[in-house]
Design a binder for these strands. Structure first.
Lengths: 95, 95
DNA sequence: CAACTATTACATTAAAAAATGAAATACCCC
DNA sequence: GGGGTATTTCATTTTTTAATGTAATAGTTG
């Protein structure tokens, strides 16, 4: 495996490895959610949520659509769905 | 999924998500290696390698045994083997 | 035991990531 | 257009993580 690929994988993992971002991804596993709906479940400020969403967008993991003055987010990198399911299976076997 | 579990998973992912640490884990996928052997493949200082190894040890991902004045490292958390293989499969399909 | 190799510990500096607060934008409804 | 809601942007501060250099430890060998 090449260093370049390792760098890319590490970057991807890093973008998932913050508790808030991982929680956002778990929330988005099976549905899209607005920023406000995400914020209800993740106790922090608007600005902070927005920044974390931006990191996930920048990494190409999620995308959004606008509807009125709501922004709905969803996971677009299908590999991430797979990966989170695998992590869940390995590390939370009792669910 | 509970916040506690998400925190734990994020912590585990974070420990893997530095390029040097991910590379160390990839090197250790199928064999144990001494600190020096690892260092040959990862261009940085002794001290730095040692610190990264400590993070992986602290997370319970790797363990070591002493032989003479060498320290041989290996992955002990079998879930990590699985996870890295999955990541590899998803993100480097051409290998 | 002296010289040597491998590895770690510790203190410091440098760099990156995260959180915060306030202001800006965008869209809706009356 | 004015007031309201949702979200983002930006600048700043705080916190965390990583790297570096030097000294220390542990084991080996002659």
């Amino acid at each position: 495996m090449q260093d370049e690929q390792i760098e890319a994988m590490a970057k991807m993992l890093k973008s998932m490895s913050h508790p808030i971002r991982l929680k956002i991804l778990c929330l988005l596993l099976d549905k899209e959610l607005s920023v406000g709906e995400i914020r209800e479940q993740v106790q922090t400020t608007h600005a902070n949520i927005s920044q974390h969403l931006n990191i996930l967008r920048g990494q190409g993991i999620i995308d959004y659509r606008k509807d009125a003055n709501f922004i709905y987010n969803k996971i677009i990198d299908k590999r991430i769905l797979d990966l989170i399911k695998k992590i869940h299976l390995l590390f939370c076997p009792n669910f």
